[in-house]
Simulated assay, not measured.
Amino acid sequence: MNLTCIIIDDEPNAVSLLEILVAQNTKWQLLSKCYDALEAIAFLKENKADFIFLDINMPQLSGMELAGLLSRDTKIIFTTAYSEYAAESYSFQTIDYLLKPITLKRFLEAMQKIEAYFNLHPANQIAIEATGNEYFFVKSGKVLRKILLGEIQYFEGEKEYVRMVTPTEQLLIYRRLKEIEEQLSPPFVRVHNSYIVNCKQIVKIQDNHIYIANKQIPISEKFRDKFMAVISQRIF
């Protein structure tokens, strides 16, 4: 299974062992090896990994502290010599908890658990036509649903997924709102940390709110100028 991961651990020998285990037993792509939490934070600001191998006992920020700062999109496999944190670890987005030294048998068990998780929770992908942008496909399980772009009223970000709303249905897309924003262009405009709207579906704009059908959507100051620049082209 093709997945992406990074290793975060301040022990070079532990990093080398995991790197070998990943290379010899999986098809995963190891994107980076980070030797402290701050290095990992900087990397993850610019890159996305399906999951991370995360040590707990590290300088500056512990693995537990780092886990609390990560996006819920980033799944964690803790790697540590300390068994006492196991219960606490599952308050985060944790798939498995590996005790050091990590044996091949235990790594293979974790590998099966990781791949089983991503088989059950596929990262839904949007594929927008390169020409015309008239429709796209939403992957749901083994089915690709064709959605007409013009029928979409808005996208709403909700924790680990995005809700896509049309007049007749709502679909959940397991991606970040920012990723969807990067694939869209006007008349789709980001108006809030939680909303992308289809300007063609707007009924009215009043008191810093957009009205689409029966939905009232706030316009945040952060996105107001860009939104109004699009709208100004249609103001008489």
Results as ranks from 00 to 15, higher is better:
Lys75His: 15
Ile76Cys: 10
Ile77Ala: 10
Phe78Pro: 03
Phe78His: 00
Ser83Lys: 15
Ser83Ile: 05
Glu84Lys: 05
Glu84Cys: 05
Ala86Gly: 08
Ala86Asp: 03
Ala87Tyr: 15
Ala87Thr: 15
Ala87Glu: 14
Glu88Arg: 09
Ser89Lys: 07
Ser91His: 14
Phe92Tyr: 15
Ile95Gly: 07
Asp96Glu: 09
Leu98Thr: 07
Leu99Arg: 11
Lys100Val: 05
Pro101Arg: 02
Pro101Lys: 05
Pro101Tyr: 02
Ile102Cys: 08
Thr103Ala: 09
Thr103Leu: 03
Leu104Gly: 12
Lys105Ile: 09
Phe107Arg: 06
Phe107Cys: 10
Glu109Met: 13
Ala110Gln: 03
Met111Trp: 11
Gln112Arg: 15
Lys113Tyr: 13
Lys113Ile: 10
Ala116Thr: 15
Tyr117Pro: 11
Phe118Cys: 02
Phe118Gln: 03
His121Ile: 04
His121Phe: 11
Pro122His: 08
Asn124Lys: 12
Ile126Lys: 03
Ala127Met: 10
Glu129Ala: 04
Glu129Tyr: 08
Glu129Ile: 05
Thr131Phe: 10
Asn133Cys: 07
Tyr135Asp: 00
Tyr135Phe: 13
Phe137Ile: 05
Val138Leu: 12
Val138Asn: 07
Lys139Ser: 13
Lys139Val: 03
Lys139Gln: 15
Lys142Ser: 12
Lys142Glu: 10
Leu148Met: 09
Leu149Gly: 07
Leu149Val: 09
Gly150His: 10
Gly150Val: 01
Ile152Val: 15
Tyr154Cys: 02
Phe155Val: 01
Gly157Met: 06
Gly157Ala: 15
Glu158Arg: 10
Glu158Ala: 11
Glu158Thr: 12
Tyr161Gln: 00
Val162Arg: 01
Met164Arg: 04
Met164Val: 07
Met164Tyr: 02
Val165Lys: 06
Thr166His: 08
Pro167Leu: 09
Thr168Ile: 02
Glu169Phe: 04
Leu171Ile: 12
Leu171Lys: 06
Leu171Thr: 14
Leu172Arg: 02
Leu172Ile: 00
Leu172Gln: 13
Ile173Asn: 00
Ile173Trp: 01
Tyr174His: 08
Arg175Gln: 14
Lys178Glu: 12
Glu179Asp: 13
Glu179Phe: 05
Glu179Arg: 06
Ile180Ala: 12
Glu182Lys: 14
Glu182Ser: 13
Glu182Tyr: 04
Ser185Leu: 03
Phe188Cys: 00
